[in-house]
Every structure is written in C-alpha cells, then in structure tokens.
Computed example of a mutant assay.
Amino acid sequence: MEQIMNYVKPELLMLTVVLYFVGFGLKNAGAVKDKYIPLINGAIGIVLCIIWVFATCSCGTLRDIAMAAFTAITQGILVAGLSTYVNQVIKQTTKEE
C-alpha cells in the first residue's frame, strides 16, 4: 500500500474517497452488477484525473500533451485501484469469521 501511495499525486488522493462512495452508491442502488463497479470507478477516475491534469498543466507541445494524458490515465487507474483496495480492507476487517 505504501509503495502505491508513493506514485499517486497527493492532490488526487481525495479521488480515492470520492470513488469509494461512488462505488458504494452504485452497489446500494443496484443500478449495475457488482462486477462492473471497478470498471466504472476506473473510467470515472480517469476522466476526473484528465480534467485535473489538463486544468493544472500548461501543455505547449505535442509531447507535453502526451505526457499529461499518460499521467492522467495512470493516476486515474491508481486512484480507482486504491478505492477498490479501501473497499476490500473495510469488508475484510468487518467480516466475522
């Protein structure tokens, strides 16, 4: 967990909590099957990271744009993964054996 946290931009850590609640809401609403929730969270995470990265960078060249897109996609995947991790930790710690 600590190694993953080294790769996530601190400004984007809040998205982990946001995605956790999105997933929680989707599960409770029964709007989609459980197996699709991580994919939806991943897509939302990538979109939100794209918005943040492009809002905070000055992309002057094609190389800058490509780097910003790569950063946004990887950060989106990481925060979605952390959200799923948080969900599993909560499930496993509250589980009775």
Results as ranks from 00 to 15, higher is better:
residue 92 Q to N: 14
residue 33 K to N: 06
residue 13 L to T: 13
residue 19 L to N: 01
residue 25 G to Q: 05
residue 67 M to E: 11
residue 33 K to R: 13
residue 56 T to V: 12
residue 27 K to D: 05
residue 80 A to E: 01
residue 42 G to I: 07
residue 77 I to F: 14
residue 66 A to M: 15
residue 67 M to T: 12
residue 64 D to I: 03
residue 74 T to D: 05
residue 27 K to H: 01
residue 4 I to G: 00
residue 84 T to P: 00
residue 9 K to L: 10
residue 19 L to W: 07
residue 4 I to H: 02
residue 13 L to C: 02
residue 37 I to Y: 01
residue 18 V to R: 01
residue 41 N to F: 10
residue 32 V to L: 13
residue 49 C to Y: 09
residue 53 V to N: 05
residue 97 E to V: 14
residue 38 P to L: 08
residue 59 C to H: 03
residue 77 I to W: 02
residue 64 D to P: 11
residue 6 N to D: 10
residue 7 Y to L: 15
residue 78 L to C: 00
residue 80 A to K: 02
residue 40 I to W: 06
residue 42 G to R: 00
residue 40 I to C: 00
residue 28 N to L: 00
residue 52 W to E: 07
residue 8 V to L: 09
residue 95 K to R: 14
residue 41 N to T: 07
residue 16 T to Y: 10
residue 83 S to H: 04
residue 83 S to F: 04
residue 73 I to V: 15
residue 25 G to S: 07
residue 10 P to H: 05
residue 1 M to V: 09
residue 42 G to D: 07
residue 49 C to Q: 02
residue 50 I to G: 15
residue 20 Y to D: 01
residue 41 N to M: 09
residue 63 R to G: 10
residue 26 L to G: 14
residue 61 T to N: 09
residue 31 A to V: 11
residue 80 A to W: 01
residue 75 Q to I: 03
residue 42 G to V: 02
residue 43 A to S: 12
residue 62 L to A: 15
residue 72 A to L: 05
residue 40 I to R: 06
residue 66 A to L: 15
residue 33 K to V: 04
